[in-house]
């Protein structure tokens, strides 16, 4: 009985490792070593933004001096701005669009301000 089980075990062992070998093979496929793949916009943004958050946080926790804070903050803010700008460029938002959009927003703000003024008067 045990002999039979033993034989079955050996047979299945051979089957397990042999099966892939008799399959159709893909030659010369090599798993690419994971080099640093450039990160997507969202991930880059997350890193820069959370860095900024951390600097702000540490400063408020009194762990950073004012000088270090300003220096670090300027550095990372610049990075964040560059990242946002580059992204806007890629996604086709031009400066002119933005300026127009900003102006519209300002106008809308003004209108609503006037409206609220009217309300107060009324």
């Amino acid at each position: 009985m045990e002999l039979v089980i033993g034989l079955v075990m050996i047979a299945s062992a051979i089957a397990i490792i042999g099966y892939p070998l008799i399959q159709k093979d893909i030659h010369n496929l090599k798993v690419k070593p994971a080099k640093n793949i450039p990160l997507g916009y969202e991930q880059q943004k997350e890193i820069v933004m959370s860095s900024l958050g951390e600097i702000e946080f540490d400063f408020n926790m009194h762990k950073l001096t004012v000088d270090d804070y300003q220096e670090l903050k300027a550095l990372h803010k610049e990075k964040a701005v560059r990242l946002l700008k580059d992204h806007d460029k890629v996604s086709g938002v031009t400066e002119r669009d933005l300026v127009r959009k900003l102006e519209e927003e300002i106008e809308a703000d003004l209108i609503s301000l006037e409206g609220s003024d009217d309300n107060e008067k009324g």
């Binding site: 943004k45 997350e46 933004m49 959370s50 900024l52 958050g53 702000e56 946080f57 803010k77 964040a80 701005v81 946002l84 700008k85 400066e95 933005l98 300026v99 900003l102």
Partner: peptide
């Protein structure tokens, strides 16, 4: 021209990641 706008945007957005 838009530095101020972007800086404001950064100031706004980083809080989402806090």
């Amino acid at each position: 021209a838009l530095d101020d706008y972007y800086e404001a945007r950064v100031e706004e957005e980083f809080k989402k990641y806090l």
